[in-house]
Design a binder for these strands. Structure first.
Lengths: 187, 187
DNA sequence: TATTGTTATACTCTATAACTATA
DNA sequence: TATAGTTATAGAGTATAACAATA
């Protein structure tokens, strides 16, 4: 986690192009990080596990783009690069499925990353309908940088926890939701 | 947590009216509970704490309405009733702030609950601009029922964890995000 | 003039449904 | 006929900005 190489240094072109749209989205929402004057969390929410978990997830998504800003990525970019790198889906439709979104969303996401030079589409010679999306070296650098930024952000979102406790938390989440990782639910 | 009284028995009228809109929203999204054939979670997501937490939060929100259906409430209703009961905000604007949404959203949410007879608006005699929202007995019954349903749902969302482990998880989340509960962030 | 509740409007995100090309 | 990618459209959800009532 604490590698010595934190300087990933993306191409300035890439960062500029992607920040064009990323910056436009970081509008100050009333819920995001902290309200103008009152408390951000209601006790009625904090005292109920399901509401608390939902609220933390929302807060994370709201803050995520800000965390990742130095990498030039937004949350969607990050998730897509992570899936492409780790799961290597053979088609964009599988990417969409792993992303949990409609196929059209994957098209837009890949378009965006491709324009930034972080991924490339490669037609499958065996079946020319399929286009395999491969991550470029610049994409891998961006993902590494985003991983570090995301970890930093998460530690800031949960400042009440030590690194050890965050590991426990992550372990519980990972094991608790592991049933969703490999099973074919009801197909 | 394990009270003997699980039968809250809402008025049939209330349940029918609120289910009119609640049922219409439970459309099968491709991400929600489990995809048609593939895995729901990508390894690239599951192996990254921030993406995993965001995804679990999304899955919870997607499934929440289904969990709460027997109570006649949706997730928004549940959160509002919880805040009204626990935090007792003096104005709708404070309710909106605690809810993390714009004031107009609170108006709509209170309208909905009021039509179902779960809350009532009471003009403040001292300052007639303010309307205090009070929870009716039916609203309190619905909230109690929803609390039980939400706990059940959460245990189903994380089947890999024992009840004890879920308590640990909740404790970590609660303590980790406690900084958001009482501090005035930057007002 | 400032604040509360309310309403109307515009914007963002997304699923759905076409459509094209390949098979 | 069926599947992958793509595009267009419609709908839900929300913030923003007005507005009316009250202070």
């Amino acid at each position: 986690m604490n590698d010595a190489s934190l300087k990933v240094s993306l191409d300035p072109d890439i960062m500029q192009r992607m920040n064009d749209s990323a910056a436009g989205r970081s509008s100050p929402s009333p819920a995001a990080g902290g309200g103008p004057d009152g408390r951000a969390f209601a006790a009625g929410v904090a005292s109920r596990p399901s509401l608390l978990l939902a609220r933390i997830g929302t807060a994370l998504e709201a803050a995520g783009d800000d965390w990742l800003a130095p990498s030039g990525l937004n949350g969607r970019d990050y998730a897509v690069l992570a899936i492409l790198t780790t799961d290597a889906p053979g088609t964009q439709q599988e990417l969409a499925r792993l992303l949990g979104k409609a196929p059209g969303i994957a098209v837009i996401a890949v378009d965006r990353l491709q324009e930034a030079g972080l991924v490339e589409r490669r037609r499958d010679p065996a079946d020319r309908r399929r286009s395999r999306v491969v991550v470029t070296p610049a994409g891998r650098r961006a993902l590494r940088k985003a991983d570090l930024l995301a970890d930093d952000g998460l530690s800031q979102l949960l400042p009440g926890l030590t690194a050890q406790e965050r590991d426990v938390l992550y372990g519980l989440l990972s094991r608790g939701a592991s049933h969703l990782a490999g099973e074919t639910s009801d197909g």
